[in-house]
């Protein structure tokens, strides 16, 4: 009887969250919430979880939209250098050396391409403003990350105990390593993420392509850009533009 009861309760909660309660089940749920404190606590815990997940999703959505926005300038917004004087200068330069001669003249400048495309990935996973009273290692790591103290951030990321280590930490360690110019270690981090299917796989392909670009390894840079474009929407336009330049 006890087991049947608890099944029933689980089922009521499950139906509540999947919006599939019948009117009589809704009534049963309301009654239990009134009469059974344990049940109410469980219900409240799951409601809290729903809100927490909602917030997490909202943060991810916001980051995604900011990503879209970062790619829009080419289409509608005019970058600040895009004024008539600069266009005139650029046009004169093009006229002087000829369009075809442009790339030949300057060659493919890997470092410049890297600098143009590299932007540290923002912290989209850990809200610093929350739990100010709580000074965990992870919080310290992200505070350092946001203040661009990547050496300290890396040190703190590594101190996070294994059981509390979220699967996005590897990605942010990779970001810190990139900023510290530790290319090989960063490369290893992002490769691991791609191979293990952890959080930020698409983003890792992008950063892998940039690392290879920095190492003047066009083949591997192009490989990651193609994988990114074929499977993900993250930075697709940028990836295409970069690939065009590599070819």
């Amino acid at each position: 009887m006890q087991a049947a009861n608890s099944m029933n309760r689980e089922d009521l909660l499950y139906r509540y969250f999947s919006h599939t309660l019948s009117p009589s089940q809704k009534k049963a749920l309301d009654e239990l919430l009134q009469s059974d404190a344990d049940f109410r606590r469980q219900f409240e815990f799951e409601v809290n979880l729903k809100h927490a997940i909602q917030k997490t999703e909202n943060e991810k959505l916001k980051a995604k939209l900011q990503g879209f926005e970062a790619e829009i300038p080419n289409k509608t917004k005019k970058p600040s250098w895009f004024n008539s004087r600069n266009i005139a200068i650029a046009a004169s330069v093009v006229l002087l050396i000829g369009v075809a001669g442009f790339y030949h003249f300057f060659g493919l400048d890997h470092s410049a391409l890297y600098e143009d495309n590299f932007k540290t990935y923002p912290n989209t996973v850990y809200s610093i403003t929350r739990s100010d009273s709580e000074n965990t290692v992870e919080r310290q790591a992200f505070v350092a990350y946001e203040t661009e103290d990547y050496g300290l951030a890396l040190e703190k990321f590594k101190q996070i105990p294994a059981d509390l280590r979220a699967d996005y930490i590897g990605f942010y360690e990779g970001q810190a390593l990139l900023n510290l110019g530790r290319w090989d270690e960063a490369l290893q981090h992002f490769t691991d993420i791609v191979e293990n299917g952890q959080s930020f796989v698409a983003e890792s392909h992008w950063y892998l392509s940039l690392i290879y670009l920095h190492q003047k390894d066009k083949t591997n840079a192009a490989k990651h850009l193609k994988t990114l474009m074929a499977n993900y929407t993250y930075n697709r336009d940028k990836a295409k533009a970069l690939l065009d330049k590599l070819n």
């Binding site: 809290n48 927490a52 997490t56 850990y126 929350r130 979220a166 996005y168 299917g197 952890q198």
Partner: peptide, 17 residues
Amino acid sequence: LTEEQLLVQKHFGSLGK
């Protein structure tokens, strides 16, 4: 989020993918 929900959010973020 309430304090309690923030705690839930934090630990939710530390779960496996």
